[in-house]
Design a binder for these strands. Structure first.
Length: 269
DNA sequence: CGAGGGACCTGGTTGC
DNA sequence: TGCAACCAGGTCCCTC
């Protein structure tokens, strides 16, 4: 479900409610997430939440001692609700706060993950080898062009590879390639330097714009306050079974790397 | 090292 | 109406 804009929207939604609060209680209803949730996490009561950061699609809850690393997987969402609100279906984890509120994690498909890291979370094996942030300085035309050299994979798959750049999932990969005028199936190694530059700009633009709209709600994504994200209305090709908004040609649907892909056969080469 | 595919899950929608 | 098949915003891990 969530790509970078949805995770960032979640971060911004929960952070004001969590910063400076203490964990009153931590309830693990179902520990069968992507990896089993360590029972020691239930022992974090009393710790203070100092900050909520994000790295790629991972949320990092910095505690006064240690960190929680949270990934929403495909169907996970975090909401702030009053303590005592009856748990929704698939609400696997709840962090009760010392001010009467609670952070509730719902994840029907259980592809999400919740890990505890006593050390620097960025050194955790899952995070250590991640590529640069797409909205940071390191992600530029030279970098992307270099990473494309000699690669035969479709540029869309390369964009979605978190070891190349983090945060770009299936929706925004299609959207960014549309904006850049590049066919999603084009071999990464056949992307010219100017096209790499256009693609970097497109990725940044699409993600920033989506964050500004509170992310994209297709089905079950909800923000921390329960409202949907409105970027869905801005999507140009993803899920578009009609005409290209620029030239009117029928938007084409294909499967690339086992994922649904949308593009305009006229605008994208 | 790179490419490709399966695996992990549940629920909603589609089609016979 | 009933039920099987298919699809979904992620990403790790295995094989070749």
């Amino acid at each position: 479900m969530p790509e970078l804009p949805e995770v960032e929207t979640t971060r911004r939604g929960i952070e004001p409610h969590l910063r400076g609060r203490r964990i009153a209680d931590l309830i693990l209803r179902d520990t069968r997430l992507r990896w089993p949730v360590s029972p020691e996490i239930a022992n974090l009561a009393g710790r203070e939440i100092v900050a909520v950061a994000r790295r790629g699609k991972y949320l990092l809850l910095e505690l006064d001692r240690g960190h929680l690393i949270w990934h929403l997987g495909m169907s996970g969402s975090l909401r702030i609700l009053p303590r005592g609100t009856p748990p929704a279906p698939h609400e696997h984890v709840e962090i009760e706060l010392d001010d009467g509120q609670a952070l509730k994690f719902r994840d029907p498909r259980r592809f999400g993950a919740l890990l505890y890291s006593a050390e620097d979370p960025l050194a955790h094996p899952l995070l250590a080898s991640l590529g640069p942030e797409p909205l940071g300085d390191e992600f530029d035309a030279g970098y992307l062009y270099r990473r494309c050299r000699g690669r035969k994979v479709a540029i869309k798959n390369l964009l979605m590879n978190s070891h190349v750049v983090v945060g770009v999932g299936n929706i925004y990969a299609s959207e960014a390639l549309y904006l850049a005028g590049i066919r999603p199936g084009r071999a990464a190694g056949r992307i010219s330097k100017p096209r790499a530059a256009r693609l970097v700009d497109a990725v940044r633009a699409v993600l920033s714009d989506a964050i500004a709209h509170g992310g994209t709600t297709l089905r079950d994504f909800t923000r921390a306050d329960g409202k949907p994200g409105y970027f869905r209305n801005e999507l140009k090709v993803y899920g578009n079974t009609g005409a290209c908004p620029a030239c009117g040609a029928p938007v084409r649907q294909a499967v690339i790397g086992q994922r649904a892909t949308y593009y305009c056969p006229a605008c994208q080469t």
